[in-house]
């Protein structure tokens, strides 16, 4: 039952992200979709592995900044600490962020580099031994949920495979905060994404294309 609830919630969030991001796609701009594996260090909550998506749209040229895009990104990660120990805990992390990303495509090589920053919210769902005051019953599980703000900065490099597909690796740092019992207040740390970027509308752009 819990899995169904999480699945439904996650699907709703992702549908909202995708539908929002695709609204202007039929108007004019290029649209990119990233699917990636993500490795996140969440400080006291440990290391998490997950999968994510990012939808990126061209931004109209503002302040003479070219190759600027806005993006909406979400991922779902899972991590376990102290596996095979009685006090083991596990958690799910679901960030949703939006931000700006700028990308530069090399003219002579099939590579592009970029960087950006965004902010949003992050949801955590943590499974711990059941607490009885200061004591714990390791034969039972209780669930803790929290939502907190999140900001992130990321930069990456991409290899253009075809006009519609490229492979990328991105690295960044995220700052997240929670205010809930049994969940670490600060879960900041680095993150690594690697995956495929699919050009859903338009093509991979050349240098200074508009």
């Amino acid at each position: 039952m819990k899995i169904v609830i999480i699945f439904t919630k996650t699907l709703l969030v992702l549908c909202a992200v995708v539908s929002f991001a695709f609204y202007p796609a039929y108007v004019r701009a290029s649209v990119y979709g990233d699917t990636y594996y993500t490795y996140t260090c969440a400080d006291g909550e440990g290391y998490l592995h997950g999968l994510g998506i990012t939808v990126t749209n061209d931004l109209p040229v503002v302040f003479n900044i070219r190759n600027a895009m806005w993006y909406v990104s979400s991922s779902l990660s899972y991590g376990q600490k102290d596996a095979n120990r009685p006090w083991n805990t596990s958690r799910l992390l679901l960030p949703v962020t939006a931000g700006l990303y700028s990308e530069y495509t090399f003219s002579s090589y099939p590579f592009k580099v970029g960087g950006g920053a965004g902010c949003g919210a992050v949801y955590i769902r943590k499974y711990t031994p059941k607490h009885y005051g200061p004591y714990m019953d390791f034969s039972q599980t209780e669930v803790h949920n929290a939502i907190g703000p999140r900001i992130e900065a990321i930069m990456g490099i991409g290899y253009i495979i075809t006009q519609k597909t490229s492979f990328f690796i991105k690295a960044g740092y995220q700052l997240s905060w929670f205010d809930a019992q049994y969940i670490e207040k600060n879960t900041s740390g680095y993150m690594i994404h690697c995956g495929l970027q699919w050009t859903l509308q338009g093509t991979n752009k050349g240098l200074f294309d508009e």
């Binding site: 699945f7 999968l51 376990q80 009685p86 083991n88 799910l92 034969s139």
Partner: peptide
């Protein structure tokens, strides 16, 4: 990913 959403490994006391 959802398939990874297991409960924690409950241990006998």
């Amino acid at each position: 990913v959802i398939g990874c959403d297991g409960m924690r490994n409950e241990e006998p006391l």
